[in-house]
């Protein structure tokens, strides 16, 4: 059973285009691990990415709050809200662009979770401050899951 008590820290999970199958699975996995460690996950994503999450988690067991990606950027740039951690799910150039934007506008520690056929090449494109977690994963989430496991404990503990 995942703990659902009073979670004080908040982590933003920013989901781009859900074209690569592992994205929804890994987002739920990250949300689960955050909640276990006392951190409340909040999803920001495209309409399609959010619909996939809604269908996968109909009881809101892992995710209580999901918001439009542009509304989330508005809130952060307007200083209305910010997060302790930010996990950006990346499999294309747009994902890199969104991660770079988050690194600039948010005070959160940014994690670039890079997957897909060209994960290594995309990782080399990153030239801004963030933690890079990359693995070639398209249909099989395990390569990136293992990398996430390596950083997750440290990610949450280091923000306390």
């Amino acid at each position: 059973m995942v703990e659902t008590g009073n979670l004080k820290n908040e982590a933003l999970l920013l989901l781009g285009c859900p074209q690569v199958p592992v994205q929804t699975s890994l987002a739920l996995y990250v949300a689960h691990n955050l909640r276990k460690r006392g951190c409340r996950p909040v999803i920001a994503g495209t309409t399609a990415a959010r619909k996939l999450m809604e269908v996968a988690d109909p009881g809101h067991y892992y995710i209580e709050e999901m918001n439009d990606i542009d509304d989330t950027i508005d809130e952060i740039t307007g200083k209305q809200r910010d997060y302790d951690l930010c996990f950006v799910f990346i499999h294309n150039d747009s994902g890199i662009a969104y991660a770079g934007t988050m690194a600039y506008i948010s005070s959160a520690r940014v994690y670039a979770l890079i997957f897909g056929e060209h994960a290594e090449e995309l990782a080399e494109e990153i030239e801004f401050p963030c933690e890079i977690v990359a693995a070639k994963a398209v249909h099989n989430p395990m390569p990136l899951k293992r990398r996430i496991d390596e950083v997750m404990e440290w990610a949450v503990v280091s923000k306390r």
């Binding site: 950027i73 934007t101 600039y104």
Partner: peptide, 16 residues
């Protein structure tokens, strides 16, 4: 402009 700069209903996204 800085990342997140808004024009109409869209933001400028990317790395400076």
């Amino acid at each position: 402009v800085e990342p997140g700069y808004r024009i109409l209903d869209v933001h400028i996204i990317g790395v400076p």
